[in-house]
Design a protein around this nucleic acid. Sequence first.
DNA 1: GTATACTCTACCAACTTAATCGGCTATGAG
DNA 2: CTCATAGCCGATTAAGTTGGTAGAGTATAC
Lengths: 144, 144
Amino acid sequence: MLSQKSRYALRALLVLAARGDATPMQISDIAETANVPRKFLEQILLELKKPGIVRSHRGRLGGYSLGRPAKDVSFADVLRVTDGPLALSPCVSVMAYRKCDDCFDEAVCGIRKALLAARDATAEVLESRSLAAAAAQMRRSGAL
Amino acid sequence: MLSQKSRYALRALLVLAARGDATPMQISDIAETANVPRKFLEQILLELKKPGIVRSHRGRLGGYSLGRPAKDVSFADVLRVTDGPLALSPCVSVMAYRKCDDCFDEAVCGIRKALLAARDATAEVLESRSLAAAAAQMRRSGAL
DNA sequence: GTATACTCTACCAACTTAATCGGCTATGAG
DNA sequence: CTCATAGCCGATTAAGTTGGTAGAGTATAC
């Protein structure tokens, strides 16, 4: 299951993706539109900023905007920031591989292959879905 | 990521699946072979018993055995017990559907479709992998 | 009838999650 | 210049989850 934080992140980013222009939008406005607690959203946006998913402008008339075109931000990109690796086990994570703590031999593990297949399947789906596509779908179904 | 509990459950079940016969094996023996803390394994097996994944025999010479043939127990069956739904959001769970707490209209949600596709992809993989297949693979690669 | 092995409830420490608070810092408008 | 404004950032917190232990109860083979 996704964390609440991930859900908030996706909602906030969809708000940014839905507005055509790239002028910055203030945290408070994003928070209100996406229905996310303001102070919590601050933290989330800060994290999304590190990998360049969003960009910020300080001072008067500051705010946040997407760091790159909405079609180039996948669900996987976002979830990796807010929820960590997509994989079900560190030993099958492509972006953040790590040996399992108590695994004595990976080559012989009866669990690993299935988890790897699961990871590949989810990654393929989540990497192919962009904010742009999701925003477009929302527009089509009548949600502003 | 899987919980430690799920990893333990899979390891323990693979131990049971790997032995050909269906005579009960004691918790302590399973715990030792699968390298799982004994008391914790007790709880796990008890949970796996409710849906019939394992069967228990009490008293002297008691123990646990698989509740049905290893080829009929999928990874999905196990993980649903130990880690809950496979889905990333309650609203896309097939086995345990629930409306998302703060979602005002599911039909218009820009996130849901992607999560549903992700769920279907992982479910297909995890439902197609059985304990029998994993045990066979382990046997082939030299792990007893 | 008694040793043995599962059953069940309670408990615990450590960690994570979902926030909130308040002060600091950069910046654009006037 | 200056100051109101908006993001930056570290600390704190309450509640919940995770991983694991303890111990009394109960069924059953011998």
